[in-house]
Amino acid sequence: MTVLRLAGLVKRFGANPVLRGIDLTVERGERIAILGASGSGKSTLLRCINFMELPDEGRVEFGGQVVGSERDGRRRYAERELTQIRRQVGMVFQHFNLFPHMTALGNVMEGPLTVLGQDRVQAEARGRAELARVGLADKADAYPAHLSGGQKQRVAIARALAMDPALLLFDEPTSALDPALVGEVLGTIRALAEDGRTMLLVTHELGFAYHVASRVLFLADGLIHEQGTPAEVLKEPRQAATRAFIASHKQFSL
């Protein structure tokens, strides 16, 4: 079953094209790692998928439905429709973006409570279950300021999971972490992968991508430059740019 289909996606910031025509189909259960140098458009691609940025051209199909409507030759998006899409797409950010005025449990409950309109009892049960899944049941009442970076990111993952997303987007989830804390977050993501969740993961952790992803995309200049299985892209890259990128990540050992 196809979860997401992008066709000819273009995004410009002013005159500067960041995405120059992305075609991508994501099947249920796929785990896609997106690699690329900074400025290659990886984050923008993720943000266009849940419409945090509106694409300038192209189509996004979500669950078989084309998002937005065509008018005067341009695609228009109604805020209400985009809000509906975002409810079904979870996003985990590089800098966690936890809500500092709420406890860990409060953060995880916030979506079910405010967006899904669940009652408090239901939302709390769900929140506790998701915190337990990421191994932080004992931190339910802690505020973000008292959590380590790795714990914060795991709470952020639990917050996304509490919405029952059909698709999870990870935007460099370990880039802002101390090296010592990267492992716990990657472990959590790996467990989600083993559960069969559909996910897109922008990352610099090539080793992790190799072991966890079902497909790897290499983005350069706003285009998918190369894609394939992890072994194809990471071990035998066909394109010079991909080879150069992988060579520059010296810590990468398979």
Binding site: N50, M52, E79, R80, T83, Q84, R86, R87, Q88, V89, G90, M91, F93, H95, F96, N97, L98, F99, E110, G111, T114, V115, A156, R159, A160, M163
Partner: peptide, 16 residues
């Protein structure tokens, strides 16, 4: 900005 991002990514509208 990240706070707005996180709220919107959860599916909140501007008012929420």
């Amino acid at each position: 900005r990240g706070q707005w991002d996180a709220a919107r990514a959860l599916g909140m509208n501007r008012g929420q």
